[in-house]
């Protein structure tokens, strides 16, 4: 991690955390991706001035014991915007972030419970007017207000991007694993409660939750000839087919291609 002396001095990072859900036991836990967001935040803060630059923020119930497993990563406190269970987290979070103006906001890609829509980073970005970088694996450097980030692509590929601060990034599973949560610091960490006005999440209140049922899957006939192909077929994440790289085309051609796509998808009529 390379940090520019000027920016790192007062680089403010916020990692947003949610309550995870263990896939086999269904118990509340530290969410995998949010844990990585905290890990990345801690690494950034440690490379800079210290842990005080990192705020770990949750909107929900401060009594939830799963929050302590984030604190066990070595946090002195976790800031919690106290909300009812039925409340929508986005507007209180926006309010908080407008007030405190961080440089980087890190989130998971999607929550492990609740709606799990993965919309939080986008909704926040829309309200704050900031750019979103989805699915990052690492932040390589921050120099003169510009961050170089690595975006995670399927099959271990990475795409280097530069983005101007401030920005929001969602952290992919490809990022560094969160450090071990220790009982002592987890138990002693302060849960800083903040009150906030909130609206009821009306969309969600109309939903009912059911355990997921496995849908029947079409058998995949692997026609690979070599062991390497079969291995690829067995391990690869599905890669989006189609699509065109328009990087080297003229601006008019690029605009036309986007316009055509939007028409095709029925976004524009």
């Amino acid at each position: 991690m390379q940090l520019d002396a000027n920016t790192s001095m007062d680089l403010k990072i916020v990692s947003l955390i949610s309550v995870g859900k263990h896939p086999t036991s269904g118990r509340a836990r530290r969410a995998e991706q949010d844990g990585r967001a905290v890990e990345l935040g801690l690494t950034l803060a440690e490379a800079g001035r210290g842990k005080q630059n990192l705020t770990v923020l949750h909107a929900g119930d401060s009594q939830q014991s799963a929050l302590r497993s984030y604190a066990g990563m070595g946090l002195e406190s976790v800031r919690v915007i106290q909300l009812r269970e039925s409340a929508d987290a986005v507007s209180p979070l926006t309010e908080y972030l407008r007030k405190h103006v961080p440089d980087i906001i890190l989130t998971g890609v999607r929550a492990e419970s609740g709606e799990s829509s993965g919309m939080v980073p986008y909704l926040l970005a829309e309200k704050l007017g900031w750019p979103v970088v989805p699915r990052i694996a690492n932040i390589v450097s921050i120099k003169e207000g510009v961050a170089e980030v690595l975006q995670a692509l399927p099959r271990g590929q990475r795409r280097a991007l530069t983005v101007r601060l401030p920005f929001i990034a969602s952290v992919d599973n490809a990022a560094a694993e969160p450090r071990q949560s220790a009982f002592g610091p987890a138990n002693r960490a302060l849960m800083e409660q903040q009150q906030a006005g909130s609206e009821t999440d009306t969309v969600r209140s109309e939903w009912s939750e059911l355990p997921a049922r496995k849908r029947p899957k079409r058998l995949k006939v692997v026609k690979a000839k070599t062991a390497a192909d079969r291995f690829k077929a067995a391990t690869a994440k599905p890669q989006g087919s189609g699509g065109k790289v328009l990087k080297d085309k003229t601006v008019t051609e690029q605009a036309q291609a986007i316009f055509d796509l939007l028409l095709e998808e029925g976004v524009l009529r």
């Binding site: 990563m73 070595g74 071990q180 949560s181 220790a182 009982f183 002592g184």
Partner: peptide, 11 residues
């Protein structure tokens, strides 16, 4: 384990 969270390997 309980203070520094540094149980090695699969710990």
């Amino acid at each position: 384990t309980m203070e520094t969270g540094s149980t090695p390997n699969k710990g």
